[in-house]
């Protein structure tokens, strides 16, 4: 499975076109890490999105795409309204990409 994280907006929104998606392949992960990521993806996908009141300014938005064969899952949320499950997935991905 390939998982991609794309970030939009924030104070530096003009950099968006220069921010390529960060991508990982679960085949390259240790088994435990791949299983943890799969669990986080499933949890984030099953939790209903939070409503946003539209008052946030300069908040960042995130698109997480998981491609598993023909099955594609796209999750989109923002700093302004984020579910705990999406936040846990996002933090896991951030920590993973920071190590590279």
């Amino acid at each position: 499975m390939k998982v991609a994280l794309r970030t939009y907006g924030g104070l530096a929104a003009v950099l968006d076109p220069r921010r390529p998606p960060q991508v990982l392949d679960t085949d390259a992960l240790p088994e435990a890490a791949a299983a943890e990521l799969a669990r986080l993806l499933a949890a984030a996908g099953s939790m209903p999105e939070e409503d946003t009141d539209g008052r946030a300014r300069d908040a960042m938005s995130y698109t997480i795409t998981a491609e598993d064969g023909d099955r594609v899952t796209v999750l989109e949320q923002s700093d302004a309204a984020m579910t705990p499950a999406f936040a846990a997935l996002l933090t896991w991905l951030r920590k993973h990409f920071a190590q590279r």
Partner: peptide, 13 residues
Amino acid sequence: FGFQVKNAFWDGR
């Protein structure tokens, strides 16, 4: 706020 978040923002409150 968050892990290595590259941003600061106003959330309305």
